Deep mutational scan, measured.
Amino acid sequence: SIEEEIKKAEEAKEKGKTFIHGDFVATTEELLDELLKRLRKKL
């Protein structure tokens, strides 16, 4: 679910890890923020 993806992305951000969502690879905090923004729009 979208909620689960958001939670996983937030955890990755806290730990400074890379998060992959489909073909979107978030390797930096900026990219994770962008991904979180996109996911929240889908809610």
Rank of each mutant, 00 (worst) to 15 (best):
S1P: 07
S1T: 11
S1D: 11
S1G: 10
I2Y: 10
I2K: 05
I2N: 03
I2F: 04
I2W: 09
I2R: 07
I2S: 06
I2T: 03
I2Q: 04
E3L: 13
E3G: 06
E3D: 08
E3H: 09
E4N: 08
E4F: 04
E4Q: 09
E5V: 15
E5G: 07
E5I: 15
E5W: 15
E5K: 08
E5M: 15
I6D: 01
I6V: 06
I6E: 02
I6W: 02
K7P: 02
K7R: 14
K7A: 11
K7S: 06
K7I: 07
K7N: 07
K8E: 05
K8M: 11
K8D: 04
K8R: 12
K8V: 03
K8H: 05
K8G: 07
K8F: 04
A9T: 02
A9P: 01
A9R: 04
A9S: 04
A9L: 12
A9C: 14
E10Q: 10
E10T: 09
E10S: 05
E10F: 06
E11R: 07
E11Y: 06
E11P: 02
E11D: 12
E11K: 05
E11N: 06
A12K: 01
A12I: 03
A12Q: 03
A12C: 14
A12G: 00
A12S: 03
A12P: 00
K13G: 03
K13T: 01
K13W: 09
K13S: 03
E14P: 01
E14W: 06
E14F: 07
E14I: 13
E14M: 11
E14L: 13
K15G: 10
K15M: 13
K15L: 13
K15P: 04
K15W: 05
K15Y: 07
K15N: 13
G16V: 01
G16A: 00
G16I: 06
G16D: 11
K17D: 15
K17M: 14
K17H: 13
K17W: 12
K17Q: 13
K17P: 14
K17E: 15
K17V: 12
K17F: 15
T18F: 10
T18N: 13
T18M: 12
T18E: 14
T18D: 15
T18H: 13
T18Y: 12
T18A: 13
T18W: 14
F19Y: 12
F19M: 14
F19V: 15
F19A: 14
F19Q: 14
I20W: 10
I20Q: 12
I20E: 12
I20S: 03
I20G: 04
H21C: 15
H21Q: 11
H21Y: 15
H21T: 11
H21V: 09
H21K: 06
H21I: 05
H21S: 14
H21N: 08
G22A: 06
G22R: 00
G22Y: 08
G22P: 08
G22N: 07
G22D: 11
G22F: 07
G22K: 01
G22E: 10
G22Q: 05
D23I: 11
D23N: 10
D23C: 13
D23T: 05
D23V: 08
F24E: 07
F24A: 02
F24V: 06
F24Q: 04
F24W: 11
F24G: 04
F24D: 04
V25L: 09
V25E: 10
V25I: 13
V25W: 11
V25S: 06
V25T: 05
V25M: 09
A26K: 01
A26H: 01
A26N: 06
A26W: 09
A26D: 02
A26E: 02
A26C: 05
A26R: 00
T27N: 15
T27Y: 14
T27M: 08
T27V: 09
T27W: 14
T27G: 11
T27L: 11
T27F: 13
T27A: 12
T27C: 15
T28W: 09
T28Q: 01
T28R: 00
T28E: 03
T28K: 00
T28H: 02
T28G: 07
T28C: 15
T28D: 06
E29I: 15
E29Q: 13
E29M: 13
E29T: 13
E29V: 14
E29S: 12
E30W: 09
E30I: 07
E30P: 03
E30Y: 06
E30M: 08
L31P: 01
L31A: 12
L31R: 02
L31S: 06
L32V: 03
L32T: 01
L32I: 13
L32D: 01
L32E: 00
L32Q: 00
L32H: 00
D33P: 00
D33K: 08
D33Y: 05
D33A: 04
D33H: 03
D33E: 11
E34I: 08
E34T: 02
E34R: 01
E34D: 07
E34M: 05
E34W: 10
L35P: 00
L35A: 03
L35M: 04
L35H: 03
L35S: 00
L36I: 15
L36R: 01
L36K: 01
L36T: 00
L36F: 00
L36M: 02
L36A: 01
L36H: 02
K37P: 01
K37T: 12
K37G: 10
K37D: 13
K37S: 12
K37Y: 00
K37V: 10
R38N: 11
R38L: 15
R38H: 15
R38K: 11
L39S: 01
L39N: 02
L39A: 02
L39H: 00
L39W: 00
R40E: 08
R40S: 05
K41Q: 14
K41H: 10
K41I: 11
K41P: 01
K41R: 10
K41G: 11
K42W: 13
K42Y: 11
K42S: 12
K42G: 08
K42M: 14
L43M: 06
L43V: 05
L43A: 04
L43W: 02
L43K: 04
L43Y: 02
L43G: 01
L43P: 01
L43T: 04
L43N: 03
L43R: 08
L43S: 03
